[in-house]
Design a protein around this nucleic acid. Structure first.
Lengths: 243, 243
DNA sequence: CAGCAGACTAAACAAGCGTTTAGCCGTCGG
DNA sequence: CCGACGGCTAAACGCTTGTTTAGTCTGCTG
């Protein structure tokens, strides 16, 4: 069987891929049609207009992402299995649950940076998750809320997002994709080190397997790290499959 | 005197403003012409084409930015005067040297995220500055290079950039522009706290003026903070005024 | 079998784009 | 005085865009 998707789904997927790669404004209906192997007219036959197609892809992507979030937070089983070097970043979520080369991270990146209601809603949602995460970590004694918990949660969020927004640029200077397994293995420990003891902490001896962290860390390093989302609470916006 | 700029400069400035606000692709030559109070033909008379205008604005912006960088690093006088709550972030550079509402941060943001040689060059330049800064801080005993200095410098850089890339989104959730004086005053201490002692450090008593930080910080907190660029070394790309 | 509905295409449409062309107007150097 | 040159405009050109229209084919339903 070559492809069991509806033609409509094929068009949606190709639009998603192209939108993620070049941005919605730079992609033409004719490009999408060619990529999907159909005529331009059929694209607007299935979706009323290009803008409507874009909105529908938005909703689809947000629904998938909401599914990823709830998979991490729905049950507590996951956090034990891969507690090795888990930093709980967005990068790990993507690496675990998405196929390599998935256009989803790129699409979410554009959505996050776009001046749209969907983009703003996505950021608010992530901020809520970040605040809940910080609260949970503080409750567990794994982190301090700081003097200004709202700001601290926001900083932790945007720091996590930055690796993801500047993925290509980091790949260029570091020589490794930060959203790959190798990249995460290289970035994770350094991030953990900063969050554990600040910039002044003596680094633990390198080369040791990152299992039981019983190094000369001056602070009681938390086994579980800064950002494994605790609970979804609710999904105010950004849900719902395709109609 | 109403305006002592050349018509050419007016066009360039209006293009810069519009490009920063909406992105170069979304801005038409006719829009630029209207904003500058001239005819569309004159825009391409002064600049050969729209793409050439965009490149010229790129070079202009990068030259101005390079000037800002060298002003901070050229002499060592600055770091003493405003050593109060100086965190050395890009935000402070902008706040001090640019008028409020300047389109420059927005333009640099788009340039940094754009898939262009100019954008990649800008990031490489910033990464070089970040590496030099980390080296200088380590030399002064104010920070550790960590196990992987390249990664640590990259993380410090993208964390700084994130506040700047997600400026609007942060403004929405925090209620204050992180690139304003009020925003920096609110974000700076929290950032300092994380970098000084990590996420577990007990926060110093709030409400105290941020002068001599002699709180119960478990780590010897550095008076000077993570990112005051030390030396320009050289400017490989991204220089040169308008021809 | 009739006919209707939906998937689908080819062609054309109006609008907006970047760019070109032709020409006007003021100001200099000879 | 005058010719040339640069700043500048108005109008048009060719092209691409999103969208519409008309029509074909296929498969199901009565």
């Amino acid at each position: 069987m070559p492809d069991d998707r509806t033609t409509r789904a094929v068009i949606r997927d190709e639009a998603l891929r192209l939108f993620a790669a070049q941005g919605p404004e730079a992609v033409t209906i004719r490009q999408i049609a060619t990529a999907a192997g159909v005529s331009p007219g059929l694209v607007v036959h299935h979706f009323r207009s290009k803008d409507n197609l874009r909105q529908e892809v938005d909703q689809y992507v947000l629904a998938v992402f909401e599914g990823l979030l709830s998979e991490l937070t729905g049950d507590g089983t996951v956090s034990f299995e891969d507690a090795g070097a888990a930093t709980g970043t967005l990068g790990e979520i993507f690496l675990e649950h998405l196929p390599v080369g998935s256009p989803l991270p790129g699409y979410l990146r554009r959505l996050l940076l776009s001046d749209t209601d969907a983009g703003r809603g996505l950021f608010r949602r992530l901020y809520a998750v970040s605040r809940e995460t910080l609260d949970a970590l503080a409750e567990a004694g794994a982190a301090s809320r700081g003097n200004d918990p709202q700001v601290r949660a926001a900083l932790l969020l945007v720091n996590d997002l930055s690796v993801f927004l500047l993925r290509d640029q980091l790949t260029a200077v570091l020589g490794v994709d930060p959203l790959s397994a190798a990249g995460l293995a290289r970035l994770g420990p350094e991030l953990l080190s900063i969050y554990a003891g600040g910039l002044n902490a003596d680094p633990p001896a390198p080369g040791i397997s990152p299992d039981a962290a019983s190094g000369p860390a001056p602070q009681p390093a938390p086994e579980q790290a800064p950002h494994p989302a605790p609970e979804p609470a609710q999904a105010p916006e950004a849900v719902g499959g395709q109609p």
